[in-house]
Amino acid sequence: MTELNEFTIIKGTSKRIVDYWKWAYSNINMNSERGVFAEFLIGSALDSLGTGRVEWDVADIKYRGNLIEVKSSAFLQEWEQKKPSIPIFDIAKKYEFGEYTSSRVRHAHIYIFALLYEEDRNFMDPLDMEQWEFYILSTRRINEFFGDQKSVSLNPLKKVCNPVRYKDINSVVDEIIDIQNKSD
């Protein structure tokens, strides 16, 4: 496979791969791209970007031997809205990937819920880390507080954990891992 960088020419054209990336992925306000961007932010904060993103992997980030699932939401969407959305995060248990089983589990050890919370479209900037809040919970706590729920909205999440700034993600995740290691 060709190693890609921003200067890679798409064979048979005058276009570079960066032209494709700009065309396909430049709007990180779209739900699907905001989610991938949130994964990138968490991987960056934990210095755990690894060799790249694997679509449909069992978790989004691997850090200190732990699997981390990243979920994102926002008040504002790319489509026209009469009022801001209610942020909702997927916490559904999943089947074992590639396995035939009737049981579902939450595979990650830690969930990080990334909220782009700016509610004024004129000021919303997903590249501004001051416009993000991160809610970090161990899967044990998610199971304890939310059981078999498939999703959780912002207000119930706020009742079980406090928002974290981008610069504090690493220390909060480390603290959760240390607590889990002591209790194992």
Results as ranks from 00 to 15, higher is better:
157 L>A: 06
121 R>C: 08
83 K>E: 14
33 E>F: 12
145 F>S: 14
72 S>T: 02
153 S>T: 15
89 F>L: 00
179 I>K: 10
46 L>I: 00
138 S>D: 11
68 I>W: 00
155 N>E: 15
145 F>T: 15
117 Y>D: 15
102 S>C: 01
117 Y>G: 14
97 F>K: 14
18 V>I: 14
83 K>H: 11
88 I>M: 15
40 F>I: 13
162 N>S: 11
19 D>T: 01
175 E>Y: 02
159 K>Q: 13
146 F>V: 04
184 D>R: 11
156 P>C: 09
4 L>S: 05
139 T>G: 04
80 E>Y: 15
1 M>Q: 06
93 K>M: 07
165 R>T: 13
141 R>Y: 03
120 D>S: 03
58 V>T: 13
94 K>H: 10
40 F>L: 15
125 D>R: 13
14 S>G: 08
49 L>A: 06
172 V>T: 14
141 R>P: 06
138 S>H: 03
44 S>F: 02
107 H>R: 12
148 D>W: 01
182 K>M: 12
115 L>W: 11
124 M>F: 05
140 R>H: 12
92 A>C: 10
71 K>V: 03
118 E>L: 01
168 D>P: 06
33 E>D: 10
62 K>P: 00
8 T>Y: 11
28 I>S: 06
3 E>D: 13
44 S>V: 00
49 L>W: 14
73 S>E: 00
136 I>P: 00
97 F>G: 01
76 L>M: 10
109 H>W: 02
160 V>L: 04
40 F>D: 01
38 A>W: 08
93 K>D: 01
69 E>K: 00
175 E>Q: 06
39 E>G: 00
132 W>D: 04
